[in-house]
């Protein structure tokens, strides 16, 4: 069953056409990597799926429901986790509170339940010893691992990553990618915008190449990276690898 179906999605900002008819789908348990040059609309696509932006035309169907018809947007968003390039941990609270806040406010979990679940996920990302630390004392890689744990605490159906390692020092990229890889092994459904091609080749079930607001090519990583059909894909890969 497809968890996400994107059909003919268009989106513009004051006359600037960013998405010009996007189609792709994600099956349950699948890891899809979204690649493409800067400005091609990858972040905009993720934001539309999370309803941080609304679309001009087309349809996004998540778990069988057209998301433009959803009444309880907050409940929907809690099921579609999002991990940002700039981490966006809440600066005014420590790691544990970062992970429990939305559980208590949105899922109405008790303090103890929320804490217990938070500690489980912090353990998974290797940040349990930092539960009391404030974000400003953490490295970029540590912050991003906490951000992933925070998203996992909501029991999301799917996780959206927007260039999760682009703001990191090179030596910290690995620790974050390892966490994502581990989630892939656990059959977490994920849509990952990334410039880490080696990682995409390794972890993705499907790679979608976007350029100029349309999907130029999609397929298994082996096909995209080794036998790209489209000239633009070939050029992009030659430049980035």
């Amino acid at each position: 069953m497809a968890i996400i179906e994107v059909k003919g999605v268009r989106k513009g900002f004051d006359g600037l056409h960013v998405l010009k008819g996007i189609d792709f789908s994600i099956e349950k348990g699948e890891v899809v990597c979204l690649i493409g040059p800067s400005g091609s609309g990858k972040s905009t696509m993720l934001r539309c799926i999370n309803l941080l932006e609304d679309i001009d035309a087309g349809k996004i169907v998540v778990l069988g429901q057209d998301i433009s018809e959803i009444r309880d947007i907050n409940a929907y968003r809690s099921k579609v986790g999002m991990v940002f390039q700039q981490f966006n941990l809440f600066n005014n609270m420590n790691v544990l509170d970062n992970c429990t806040l939305a559980q208590k406010r949105v899922l109405k979990r008790s303090e103890e339940d929320a804490k217990k679940i938070a500690m489980e996920h912090l353990l998974k990302v290797g940040m349990v010893d930092f539960a009391n630390a404030y974000p400003s004392t953490l490295s970029g890689g540590q912050k991003q691992r906490v951000a992933i744990a925070r998203a996992l605490c909501m029991d999301p159906e799917i996780l959206l990553f927007d260039e999760p390692t682009s703001a990191l020092d090179p030596e910290m990229v690995g620790e974050v990618l390892n966490v994502i890889r581990q989630l892939a092994d656990e059959d977490m459904t994920m849509l990952i915008v990334t410039h880490e091609m080696a990682f995409a080749r390794d972890v993705a079930d499907k790679v979608v190449f976007m350029d100029g607001g349309i999907v130029l090519e999609e397929g298994r990583p082996d096909d995209i990276f080794n036998h790209p059909k489209n000239e633009r894909t070939r050029q992009f890969l030659a430049r980035i690898i």
């Binding site: 999370n50 941080l52 907050n74 409940a75 929907y76 968003r77 809690s78 099921k79 579609v80 986790g81 999002m82 940002f84 700039q86 966006n88 941990l89 809440f90 600066n91 005014n92 806040l101 939305a102 406010r105 949105v106 951000a147 925070r150 998203a151 909501m154």
Partner: peptide
């Protein structure tokens, strides 16, 4: 930072909750 708002909203928090807690 506007990212604070986006992160809270992406977790499903309402605009009121986001304002008060974050």
């Amino acid at each position: 930072d506007p990212g604070q708002n986006e992160a809270a909203r992406s977790l499903g928090m309402s605009s009121m909750q986001t304002m008060m807690d974050v």
